[in-house]
């Protein structure tokens, strides 16, 4: 049986419920796409059915041939494609084919990070305890995707809804992140 990085934390994350809906969404398919040629980026987006983000620090999402897919901007020539579990091998082959003769690479990085979805009106406030990026809705609207440090661990932070934030954290740092999150919620749990 494959155990997800935050398997042991399922109950403790669920116990944050009055403050924050926090749950791991394990084993998402994740592919790092490195490509700089604008035509190849457009072709890859067309193949996927979801256009790649053109602005820095944003992500795009949509439903295509692989179901619900998100494309995250990680750098000027670097993107992360995320999709439902189990699709990584298929998507990798399709995307690699769509690159054609353009210079670029598609690498399956699904095991690198696990996904944690935080939901609730306090989600931005709790994250602000350890994250220096301005998470106010005016500075980080829905569609924002930043790589930054949260309590000294590297994360990819996606603002997926007004009150919903999706965190991608390295599998080996996932328990540290969960422990930090639990601690950051303490002050809100104490006051009903």
């Amino acid at each position: 049986m494959t155990v997800s990085p935050l398997h042991a934390w399922t109950d403790r994350l669920a116990a944050l419920a009055p403050v924050l809906g926090a749950a791991e969404v394990p084993f998402r398919s994740q592919l790092t796409v490195r490509v700089s040629d604008p035509d190849a980026i457009a072709a890859t987006g067309a193949t996927l059915g979801i256009g790649f983000p053109s602005a820095a620090c944003t992500f795009t999402s949509g439903t295509g041939r692989f179901g619900d897919v998100e494309v995250l901007w990680l750098g000027p020539d670097e993107f992360l494609v995320t999709a439902s579990p189990g699709l990584q091998v298929t998507i990798e082959e399709v995307l690699r084919g769509s690159l054609g003769t353009a210079r670029g690479s598609v690498v399956d990085t699904s095991a690198q990070r696990t996904t944690v979805v935080l939901q609730g009106p306090r989600s931005r406030e709790v994250l602000a305890h350890g994250c220096s990026v301005d998470l106010h809705p005016s500075a980080a609207p829905v569609g924002t995707c930043v790589q930054t440090l949260l309590a000294r661990t590297g994360i990819v932070l996606q603002v997926t809804g007004d009150d919903t934030v999706t965190i991608l954290v390295r599998s080996s740092f996932a328990e540290y992140f969960a422990a930090w999150l639990t601690d950051a919620c303490v002050e809100y749990l104490a006051v009903p």
Binding site: A56, C57, V146
Partner: peptide, 10 residues
Amino acid sequence: PWCGPREEAE
């Protein structure tokens, strides 16, 4: 130049 202002520690 890509991400905007961030903390020095990054």
